[in-house]
Design a protein around this nucleic acid. Structure first.
Lengths: 140, 140
DNA sequence: ACAGTTATTTGAGTGAATCAAGTAATTCCT
DNA sequence: AGGAATTACTTGATTCACTCAAATAACTGT
């Protein structure tokens, strides 16, 4: 379990509850991935392969080094969850795509990761709108 | 930069903005730690040493294996940010405490991690209360 | 065709995390 | 009091995420 990105000092209740939310979210994500024997990073990459795409695009979207993606994809490939085919348009590049089994695991992950759904579901539609508006404003 | 604990599918706007929040929060935490050449885990542990305490308590609070704490504390000790003294009451145990330099770095970290403060600060006091109430309800 | 750029991989290194096993000191039981 | 069980922590082995620097190959523009 990853250590929480904890509150050193929470100077308001809103900050404290924000931290709680982040911590619970992150742990739920990790737990859902673990149910399927995936690391959070693997679940993340798998979840972004709805269409086949290149390594570079993944690295850019996820804000990490390309070699990090290489490793994660190699492991997903070893698990039989993705394939890496040469890109016919550009022979330097590779196209990553989920296998059928990858689709299934990804779907099961989406089902297992209920946290956001459940949390939002505790709110009425009006409250959901309010929350959305408040968080958007808070995010700037 | 850690990969985001991404949304596989966001079935509502509230869920999507929740994910955004978590992602931005986590990245800000990591960035603040990096400014002080700390890993997120190191910043986390350092932030929980307002009073001297044992390794076991840290492990329990942070929900990880004790040996993980040992490693992190060893590194913090090597950086001169914490000390590990034998517990006079129980010679099996060790008491971890921040050094003055640890206090300073921890304080600078708290200053550098502005995200929660800033985000909440964009809201009026009323809105902050609303947000707190909504998130509490969502957390169940 | 040649130089420069781009896509990806490889290799080396750090750190987080877990598990299993070990050590030492405490507690509990009779 | 004495021995067994428990507790607190460390060590060692392993896996994975992550970064950086360097290598390889293939593309692009002139």
């Amino acid at each position: 379990m990853a250590l929480p990105n904890g509150p050193v000092t929470a100077s308001s209740e809103a900050e404290a509850v924000l931290f709680d939310l982040v911590d619970v979210y992150d742990r739920a994500y990790e737990a859902a991935a673990a149910e399927l024997s995936l690391s959070p990073a693997q679940a993340c990459v798998l979840g972004r392969l709805d269409e086949r795409r290149g390594m570079g695009g993944l690295a850019e979207e996820l804000g990490c080094d390309a070699s990090n993606i290489t490793q994660i994809v190699v492991r997903l490939e070893a698990l039989g969850l993705v394939t890496r085919e040469p890109n016919p348009r550009d022979r330097r590049a590779r196209l990553v795509a989920r296998t059928p089994r990858g689709d299934e695991i990804n779907h099961r992950f989406a089902t297992a990761f209920t946290f956001a759904r459940t949390a939002v579901g505790r709110l009425s539609p009006d409250e959901q709108d309010q929350l959305t508006a408040l968080l958007r404003k808070a995010l700037g």
